[in-house]
Design a binder for these strands. Structure first.
Length: 587
DNA sequence: GCCGTTTTCGGCCCGACTGTTTTCAGTCG
């Protein structure tokens, strides 16, 4: 049972409690525990095995700890199973529909006997939903739209695709004179591997024309809502875009607020409360004497209290006694505490990289010759690069056997001789065969500067076999790097099942580096895996897997992902000069 | 349910928009 499995069960329990109208703070405790479990880098199953005290984890108390132990040991949670005897599982699905929360889901179930999305659709079409107290014709219509979208399975969009859609929209809005400043916030700014929607932030003293232009964007398919300062639309691609318009003095506070994450913001506000401050998207305010105590529900001016910060992000963080936190870290994974102590990491940057260690040429399935790849790498200012064409078993890619590999070396030597400006490292992406052996013989491997290995077949092997297969490969005495270790393709293919933690520890034992594949459809390893690698002291390399010169620029997605994992230059091997790189990789 | 240099009890983040309300609950981010 993985951490994500555990988190899912706890989240279900939280949803059920919400449906039953339980104490909201108890529900929040479950949400908090879910967060902790999700972002825990070490497998909890292992911690349980080792008899660790789980209550040391934030948000995990006696109850949560016992839930986790029960889940790890039995694979089930008794209380949850019992609850599912009185409440249908499918009700949780209803709550996922936009506009349907716990209260409405319960009401639909209590009064109409609706348990499933299908039943809800039927009831709405028959007009029975509108007849309910608290519902009306509009909510009924909205529910039908939500169901239609739910059926389309709208998923999160990979960051790379979001980038393509965001750029033209930003240009379109920025062209308006009334827009003083336009930024994209949200998970997009935090550079998460996928984004659910786009959060735009516009600074304007006159919001009217900005909102008007936003709603008139030609690719808007539907307006979800629109107020004076806040609007939400769905583009024809299905991507949701939210716009918030603010005055200049609130810009920094708004950037913090809309960049999130939600959990990071909550942490900031908790800290503010302790300091007698209040944080909102409008700024940081001192809480007045009479505030808070006798809040009778009367209208409260959102700008009440003296504003002590708001114009810039730095100012907002400083008002809370914090260093400015890079957006990639804003996930409530300890960054606020680190910022308070001045101990934020010096995150890796693009300019720290001295080379790219995975790419392909026309010798296998790449689009450019090795000389073209070399020139493009040199143009990027790299000190070195490794060419890693596929090996023979990937016949469809034109993979190289030992003989062709040796032929390639001749061409490499010629090209390298013409280009002293960059160091050409001979390498290959060697296939890990189903039994864990390598696709190229040791004699040929010994002629390479770097041996990169990866899995490209038999993804369906049972977990035990898959784990053994990879363990065997990384224990091979000539292997230096394990490439795209989990094999996932974001939104298209799940990672093949294997014990990631065991493989990582084996990499540590055999001095094998792990690759962070920068391609936006892979980003493999993901952030929590990278954090675990760092914890274990395993070197990481960041490479593009470019199949053409155009893809070398994708390296920035790898850098962004590494930053999300708190990686510093010293954690990444290809920030090192070539001599040190090869020394560190040597067996 | 979790947590504690005010606390083992009594707190727990903040605001906008919608729809159905005659003053606000529900949902969302």
């Amino acid at each position: 049972m993985t951490n994500l499995d555990i988190a899912r069960v706890l989240a279900q329990l939280g949803d059920l409690l919400e449906l039953q109208g339980a104490n909201p703070f108890r529900i929040r405790a479950y949400r908090n525990a879910v967060r902790t479990v999700e972002s825990e880098t070490k497998p909890l199953a292992r911690s349980v095995e080792e008899g660790r005290d789980l209550t040391e984890l934030p948000g995990i108390g006696k109850e949560m700890a016992s839930h986790i132990v029960e889940l790890v040991e039995t694979g089930k949670l008794g209380v949850l199973e019992e609850m599912f005897e009185t409440v249908p599982r499918t009700l949780l699905e209803l709550m996922r529909l936009p506009g349907v929360g716990p209260k409405k889901a319960k009401k639909l179930w209590d009064e109409l006997g609706v348990e499933t999305v299908d039943a809800l659709e039927e009831a709405a079409k028959a007009g029975r939903v509108a007849a309910l107290d608290g519902f009306g014709a509009k909510s009924q219509e909205k529910i039908l739209v939500s169901i239609a979208e739910y059926r389309q399975h709208r998923e999160r969009v990979p960051l790379g695709e979001a980038d393509e859609q965001v750029a033209p929209l930003v240009d379109y809005l920025s062209a308006l004179d009334e827009v003083d400043r336009l930024e994209v916030a949200g998970s997009y700014r935090r550079r998460k591997e996928t984004v659910g929607d786009i959060d735009l932030l516009a600074v304007a003293t006159e919001p009217g024309p900005v909102m008007e232009r936003f709603l008139a964007y030609p690719r808007v398919e539907r307006v979800e809502m629109s107020g004076d300062t806040r609007g939400s639309v769905v583009l024809d691609s299905g991507l949701e875009v939210d716009l918030r318009i603010l005055p200049p003095e609130s810009y920094g506070a708004a950037m913090v607020y809309f960049t999130g994450s939600k959990e990071h913001n909550i942490r900031l506000r908790q800290r503010a409360v302790q300091q007698g401050l209040r944080v909102s998207e409008y700024g940081v305010f001192e809480v007045g004497e009479d505030e808070g105590e006798e809040d009778t529900g009367a209208e409260r001016d959102v700008l009440a209290g003296k504003r002590v910060a708001g114009a810039t992000e730095e100012e907002v963080y400083r008002a809370l006694g914090l260093d400015w936190v890079p957006p990639e870290l804003r996930e409530d994974r300890g960054e606020v505490a680190a910022a308070a102590e001045g101990k934020l990491p010096r995150l890796i940057e693009l300019s720290d990289l001295k080379g790219d260690l995975q790419m392909h040429s026309t010798w296998s399935d790449g689009k450019n010759t090795i000389e073209e790849m070399l020139e493009a790498c040199a143009a990027r200012g790299y000190e070195y690069f490794a060419l890693t064409d596929h090996s023979q078993s990937l016949a469809m890619t034109g993979g190289l056997d030992e003989a062709r590999l040796r032929e390639q070396w001749k061409e490499i030597d010629e090209v390298a001789a013409r280009h002293p400006e960059i160091r050409f490292l001979k390498s290959q992406e060697v296939d890990i065969l189903a039994d864990g052996s390598l696709d190229i013989d040791d004699d040929a491997l010994a002629g390479l500067d770097i041996v990169l290995v990866s899995v490209h077949s038999r993804f369906e092997l049972p977990e035990d076999e898959q784990t053994e297969r990879i363990l065997k490969a990384v224990s091979h005495p000539l292997v230096n790097i394990l490439a795209h270790p989990t094999g996932r393709l974001i939104g298209r293919r799940k990672p093949y099942p294997f014990d990631v933690d065991r493989v990582l520890r084996a990499c540590k034992d055999h001095n094998v580096a792990v690759e962070l594949n920068a391609h936006p459809s892979r980003l493999d390893l993901k952030d929590t895996h990278l954090m675990r690698a760092k914890e274990l002291g395993i070197p990481v390399v960041i490479s593009t897997d470019a199949h053409g010169v155009k893809e070398l620029g994708l390296i920035r997605y790898g850098i962004e992902q590494a930053r999300r994992a708190w990686l510093e230059p010293k954690d990444v091997l290809n920030t090192r000069p070539v001599d040190e790189l090869l020394k560190r990789l040597a067996k």
